[in-house]
Amino acid sequence: MVRRGRRRRRPPAAHRRRHCHRSAWPRNWARANGYDVPIRGRIPAEVRHAWELAHESS
């Protein structure tokens, strides 16, 4: 017998939209500061770390 894994449900569209700004801000900051970041997908750890350091006190 072959067991099927659980299907993962996608979060509601509203949740995805709310989460989007979390990656948009570091992405825009990175581009303005000379980092090469993809339009979509994972933000490189180096870029995320630099963004966090730059916004530590705010």
Rank of each mutant, 00 (worst) to 15 (best):
G41W: 02
H55K: 09
H21Y: 01
P44L: 03
A24S: 11
I43H: 08
P11M: 03
N28K: 08
A14I: 14
A24M: 11
W29E: 05
R7G: 04
Y35T: 13
R17W: 13
R8W: 11
R7I: 05
R17E: 11
W51G: 09
P11S: 02
M1K: 00
P12K: 10
G5R: 11
H21C: 07
P44Y: 05
R22P: 01
A30K: 07
I43C: 11
H19N: 12
G34W: 01
R42P: 08
A30D: 08
H55Y: 03
S23I: 03
W51P: 03
R10E: 10
R3Y: 15
R27Q: 09
E56C: 07
D36A: 09
A14M: 05
I43P: 07
R42N: 11
E52L: 15
A30V: 06
G41C: 04
P26T: 07
Y35E: 13
V47R: 09
C20G: 08
N33D: 09
I43M: 12
R17I: 13
G34Y: 05
S57T: 08
P12I: 00
R42D: 10
H55N: 10
A14Q: 09
G41R: 06
I43R: 10
R6E: 04
A24Q: 11
P11Y: 01
A54F: 02
A32E: 13
R8Q: 05
R10S: 13
R9I: 03
L53T: 03
G34D: 06
H21L: 10
I39F: 00
R4V: 14
H15N: 14
H19S: 14
S23Q: 06
R3C: 03
V2M: 11
R31F: 00
H21S: 08
V37A: 07
R17S: 08
R27Y: 00
W29N: 10
I39Y: 05
M1T: 01
S23K: 02
R31V: 06
A45V: 13
V37S: 09
Y35R: 15
W51F: 15
H21D: 14
H21R: 11
R16G: 05
M1D: 00
R10H: 13
P44S: 04
E46S: 06
R16H: 02
R9T: 06
R17T: 12
A54C: 09
N28M: 06
E46P: 02
R3N: 00
R4F: 10
H55M: 11
I39T: 07
R6C: 01
R18T: 10
R31I: 05
V47K: 14
G34S: 09
R17M: 12
A50N: 02
R6N: 03
M1S: 03
W29K: 10
I39N: 13
G34N: 08
D36P: 04
Y35W: 13
H19P: 00
